[in-house]
Design a protein around this nucleic acid. Structure first.
Length: 611
RNA sequence: GGGACCGUAGUUCAACCGGUUAGAGCACCGCCCUGUCACGGCGGAAGUUGCGGGUUCGAAUCCCGUCGGUCCCGCCA
């Protein structure tokens, strides 16, 4: 149907007869001559329709609207010297139309404009309802191309390294721990249920037992949890697993992978090696396991300085086993008024949202004088003051913001305040303009976290991570005691404060695997019932193995400078996990439910009262 | 499950502390215009202010409920 792409035409095509297909981006009617911007996936070119040089085409062109689908035949010619368009890649030429065929027209009003010139803030609800139109817009079209490039670059790298892509089941079984499963009734096996995979974790380990040695998969994963800007109920992981590799080798290989993706997609040579930080340091210095290292304002622990002071908020926190930490905001005295850091202020409420009771502050004035509430000032000795200033590196003009309480809450609150201030004070560029790529490996995660509500240990990562051998010790009879406090051979790749991926070395010893499952509170019989196949597999010569998985949606989001993974997914769901275009989920016929041996107990709350 | 914000013409927005016939840009329709490129000029049509209720002489505006969307907390190994 066409000889060239609209956006491909250049001077060298002058005098060529061409056929083009595409959409009317815009039409400019000068009464005598009509210009049409014709757009296809390659770009836009100007079509000129002259009544003297194509009367039939002119008659059609007179009534064209935006987004009409056209086939155009004509001749490429140079534009007059005074009407070159430097803003357009094809701006040196135009196509003089001899024939215009309308392939399809737009009936009624468009739900929203498509042209790049009209890409204003369209309500996302509308974009999702008419996603096919939204995808036609440059922004989404570009994002999907960028996504394909990203995946393509990963595939090329991994294939070159001897990895093969293996598909794993989408119909699988539910496992305890982790997120809520999407569940699917079995028609054939009445009363039994499939679950959609939260990740291919166990299957990829079994592929290692199966001698694949190097596996990857662009895998769809499913988790029935509430949504966020960076969380969808179905999402895509670049899932990788390999045998006979230690942690260092795995990190190196994945750095190479990331570098080749960034090179292919952004043309950037990332500096190597990526910095590393232990989980413990990350929590201590940033209050989070995924620090954004693009800016400073690290957390300083001042618990020891204030542990005995008269200001009970501080000393009490330390006495109760908590901590007092602070962040130093350079120039904060100038930039942040008291109104903003006191109750009701925007900075204060950030801390509050993270569960903090308050946000104490000290303003450092000229000559190291401090300005703060009396309760702090009156209870701080000169020595303590000096120590505070030197440890935080505070200079005149610096604002110190303090969190006090249990350590987890303090970390959470100050992490949140730190991120908020970085944006507020312009320490990071807007996502759209970001050109800083601060990768960071966070290593040495703890194996477990104690859940005080349920009075048991939970796997921080998942219960298949291999513990650090030193922490575990060689005496298997001691594992029940050494395991809970052990570090895992687990690692996360963090980019600009977002978790891009994570993984670990896996347990390849069935006895150790049983012990870990017991530690997270799974009785032996249940472990056998749920994971017997895994333990059996480990007993037939499982190789040492490990791997990781990257969040493809997030990676593309960062590469595209978007703030939501919905803008990297062709057909995403809303926060209510609904598709506004197809209106899924929807009802099914009673007969279908019968066949599945399922009855619904759902009661429409709006009709509940009538009973 | 909880907190916050949003919903006005096809669309993007406006309409102060409740007060004439709810306005504007773009899009749409008609007319004019032979070098524009987010063309320009003149004119026109277009609204159950998401929906339901309440307060009031009077509601887009205030209150309650509800539906939908977004952000966040919980949740997400």
């Amino acid at each position: 149907m066409r000889s060239n792409g609209c956006g491909d035409l250049r001077k060298e095509h002058i005098d060529n007869s061409v056929q083009l297909c595409g959409w009317v981006d815009r039409r400019r009617d000068h009464g005598g001559v009509i210009f049409i911007d014709l757009r296809d996936r390659t770009g836009t070119v100007q079509i000129t329709v002259d009544p003297d040089l194509g009367a039939e085409a002119f008659a059609v062109a007179e009534h064209l609207r935006s987004e009409t689908v056209l086939q155009i035949s004509g001749k490429v010619r140079a534009r007059p010297a005074e009407s070159l368009n430097e803003k357009l890649a094809t701006g040196a030429v135009e196509v003089l139309a001899s024939g215009i065929t309308v392939l399809n027209s737009v009936k009624g009003n468009l739900p929203f404009p498509v042209s790049v010139h009209d890409e204003e803030n369209t309500r996302e609800e509308l974009r999702l309802r008419h996603r096919y139109l939204d995808l036609r817009r440059k922004r989404m079209n570009d994002n999907l191309r960028l996504r394909a490039q990203t995946i393509q670059a990963a595939r090329r790298f991994l294939e070159d390294e001897g990895f093969i892509e293996v598909e794993t089941p989408v119909l699988t079984r539910s496992t305890p721990e982790g997120a809520r499963d999407y569940v699917l009734p079995s028609r054939v096996c009445g009363g039994e249920w499939f679950a959609l995979p939260q990740s291919p974790q166990l299957f990829k380990q079994l592929l290692m037992v199966g001698g694949i040695e190097r596996y990857y998969q662009v895998a769809r994963c499913f988790r029935d949890e509430d949504l966020r800007a960076d969380r969808q109920p179905e999402f895509t992981q670049l899932d990788i697993e390999m045998s006979f590799m230690d942690q260092e080798e795995i990190l190196q290989l994945n750095e190479s992978l990331i570098c080749s993706i960034w090179k292919a997609v952004k043309g950037i040579d990332l500096p190597r090696p990526f910095p590393r930080m232990t989980w413990h340091d990350a929590m201590e210095r940033y209050g989070t396991d995924r620090p954004d290292t693009r800016y400073g304002m690290e957390l300083t622990n001042v618990s020891d300085i204030v542990k005995d002071m008269g200001f009970k908020v501080f000393s009490g926190a330390v006495k109760n086993g908590g901590a007092v930490k602070c962040i130093a905001v350079p120039g904060g005295n100038e930039a942040l008024s008291n109104v903003r850091i006191k109750p009701g202020g925007d900075v204060f409420s950030e801390a509050q949202k993270a569960g903090a009771g308050g946000l104490a502050f000290i303003r450092v004035r000229d000559g190291g004088e401090i300005d703060t509430i009396g309760a702090i000032k009156d209870n701080l000795s000169d020595e303590q003051k000096q120590e505070l200033l030197s440890r935080t590196g505070a200079e005149p003009g610096t604002l110190l913001l303090f969190g006090a309480g249990d350590t987890a809450t303090v970390n959470k609150a100050l992490d949140r305040v730190r991120q908020y201030l970085a944006k507020e004070l312009g320490m990071v560029k807007a996502d759209r303009d970001n050109d800083q790529w601060n990768f960071l490996w966070v290593v040495d995660f703890p194996m477990f976290e104690f859940n005080s509500d349920e009075n048991r240990y939970e796997a921080l990562h998942h219960p298949f991570c291999a513990p650090n051998a030193e922490d575990l010790g060689s005496d298997a009879s001691q594992w029940a005691d050494t395991l809970p406090g052990a570090r895992a051979q687990a690692y996360d790749l963090v980019l600009n404060g977002l978790e891009l991926g994570g993984g670990s070395l896996r347990i390849h010893d069935s006895a150790l695997q049983r012990q870990v499952l017991q530690t997270v509170g799974l009785p032996l019989e249940e472990a056998q019932e749920q994971f017997g196949f895994l333990m059996d597999a480990l007993d037939v010569g499982a190789p040492p193995h490990g791997g990781l998985a990257f969040g493809v949606d997030r990676m593309v989001m960062l590469l595209a400078g978007e703030e939501s993974i919905r803008d990297t997914i062709a057909f995403p769901k809303t926060q209510q996990a609904r598709c506004l275009m197809t209106n899924a989920p929807g009802g099914v016929a009673d007969k279908q439910l019968e066949e599945l041996h399922v009855a619904s107990t759902w009661v429409d709350p709006t009709e509940e009262d009538s009973n």
